[in-house]
């Protein structure tokens, strides 16, 4: 399968006061289309930094980042925003839903940036909520949902615009084992049945087992090759 994510000699440095810290050192990886990759490693190993680069939230200090056929490290801030809206769905550890909006309004957010009509948006939102099994909770606000349900809404929001890639940052980090398994099953289903490419950062080896490949990072470098689940 062709690579949907391809990083070549990527270096990422951060400046903290007078100190410059290199978080990623000449990192090169490729992720195939339709893959489900778990990024693992200890805290500070650069997992989230790598995820941010793949998701177009950050730019590398050096090197190339190709995602969905585009050199995203060369895009302007405005172009990158449009690119993210078109190609990437994000799932966060703490769901990051808008507390004052209902589940359906939260899911609708990415569609506000499209030219879809109100009726089309509503239809797509319902379809996404149905996929995550929460069609009956459309009118509920995040505070009225359990952690697992809130994360499902977040996944529906990530899916609704039919992105090329799903980027998940510790999606089960705030959930109990049973709920975490349900979420991971859902991600696995999206990968297998809907063909979504998923890159997931996790500390949890059990969560990583749901992925088809695992990449281990340590001190900003890939320490191990991929391992089939």
């Amino acid at each position: 399968m062709s690579a949907i994510v391809s990083l070549h000699n990527v270096v990422k440095t951060y400046t903290r006061g007078k100190q410059t810290v290199e978080v990623l050192h000449n990192l090169s990886i490729e992720i195939a289309q339709g893959d489900f990759v778990a990024l693992m490693g200890p805290s500070g190993s650069g997992k989230t930094t790598l995820l941010n680069l793949i998701g177009g939230l950050d730019r590398p200090s050096r090197g190339e980042v190709n995602v969905a056929g585009e050199r995203i490290d060369q895009l302007s801030s405005g172009q990158l925003a449009k690119w993210r809206a078109r190609h990437v769905g994000f799932v966060f550890q703490f769901y990051n839903l808008m507390p004052m909006l209902s589940a359906e309004r939260n899911v609708e957010l990415p569609l506000l940036l499209t030219n879809l009509s109100g009726a089309q948006r509503k239809q797509n939102v319902l379809a996404a909520l149905t996929v995550v099994g929460l069609a009956d909770r459309a009118k509920h606000k995040p505070a009225e949902l359990s952690g697992g349900q809130a994360q499902r809404v977040a996944i529906a929001r990530a899916l609704v615009a039919d992105p090329t890639l799903l980027v998940c940052d510790e999606p089960t980090g705030d959930l109990d084992r049973t709920t975490a398994d349900e979420i991971l099953h859902l991600l696995q289903m999206l990968n297998k049945d809907h063909g979504k490419t998923i890159v997931m950062v996790t500390h949890d080896p059990k969560a990583a087992e749901y992925a088809s490949h695992q990449l281990h990072l340590d001190k900003g470098q890939l320490v191990e090759g991929s391992a089939h689940a």
Binding site: G55, A81, K82, R84, A85, F90, F92, L113
Partner: peptide, 16 residues
Amino acid sequence: VPELAVLKTLGFSDTA
């Protein structure tokens, strides 16, 4: 701030 960051993550531009 976190909510606004999420909107930007979803693709809302700086101007938006």
